[in-house]
């Protein structure tokens, strides 16, 4: 962009460079001003104390390894919530993907707009917000958590599935139509086999992501290991809270490893 400007206006290179540095300077100043306002001004530095004190406080969170076995069951619960949440998202995403795929959406653009709207809502609302709403409607426990996960990830599933449907190669569909097959059979034999591998990859990816999401839902009472973390924090048992974080971290790393392995093997 600026290179071209330089060639066209040989008399103005200095000004172009100057303007660029002025922009950098302005951006840096803006960031520093923000830092001044929200870090320096709004932080209670007196409470924080010396670096040594901070380190001591941080050290209180060092995981208590003896506590680790107790973390296992809530972790399992979290995993199962992620499974159910993903299953729910998958089930809901299929009709929504149908509506949101431009090439097959009925009553265009009405149903298409609806499908896209659901996708945007689902994708831009944090799982914690969903969880709070469901907890306030249904009470505590894993059920609102599962619903929150489902609502949170249905958008991604529907979006990627709709895109896969939009990118289907038309040749095989034409061939299936030419055999005299009706729309359902054309979908089953022409569209599904093409979309399926992409879809499976996305389901596994969502499962991996939902594992992370499920682990914090307990903070607002929506089940899973987050609840244990909140309890330990409340009881000031920081070492056990640290163990919970360690457990989640380990589970998420293992989950991501398997998710990557499976997805690379699928392709």
């Amino acid at each position: 962009m600026s290179d071209a400007a330089r060639v066209e206006n040989p008399l103005r290179p200095g000004r172009v460079i100057l303007r660029r540095y002025a922009a950098y300077l302005a951006a840096t100043l803006a960031v520093l001003a923000m830092a001044q306002q929200i870090i320096v001004a709004e932080t209670d530095w007196a409470r924080m104390g010396s670096a040594a004190e901070l380190l001591r406080e941080a050290a209180a969170f060092l995981p208590n390894l003896a506590f680790m076995p107790e973390v296992l069951f809530p972790l399992l619960e979290t995993l199962l919530m992620a499974l159910w949440g993903t299953a729910m998202a998958v089930a809901l995403s299929i009709p929504i993907a149908y509506l949101a795929a431009k090439n097959i959406s009925p009553f265009y653009p009405l149903a298409y707009g609806f499908g896209r709207g659901v996708i945007v809502l689902s994708r831009s609302t944090h799982e914690i917000i969903f969880a709070l709403l469901f907890v306030s409607a249904l009470g505590l426990g894993p059920l609102p958590g599962i619903l929150a996960l489902g609502c949170r990830s249905v958008g991604f599933m529907a979006k990627t599935t709709a895109e896969a449907i939009e990118n289907v190669i038309p040749g095989p569909i034409e061939a299936i139509e030419a055999t005299g097959a009706g729309p359902i059979k054309v979908f089953l034999f022409g569209v599904v086999p093409q979309v399926f591998p992409i879809w499976v990859g996305n389901v596994i990816f969502q499962l991996d992501i939902n594992l992370r999401r499920a682990s914090i839902l307990g903070l607002v009472g929506a089940g899973g290991i987050g609840l244990m973390f909140a309890e330990k924090m409340q009881m000031l048992e920081y070492d056990k809270a640290g163990s919970v974080v360690l457990g989640i971290t380990a589970m998420v790393i293992v989950g991501e490893y398997f998710s990557n392995r499976i997805r690379t093997r699928l392709i």
Partner: peptide, 15 residues
């Protein structure tokens, strides 16, 4: 259409 078999340039198989 059942009475008309069609064969395509790009084969159009479901891969």
């Amino acid at each position: 259409r059942r009475n008309m078999g069609m064969i395509f340039q790009e084969f159009n198989l479901v891969e």
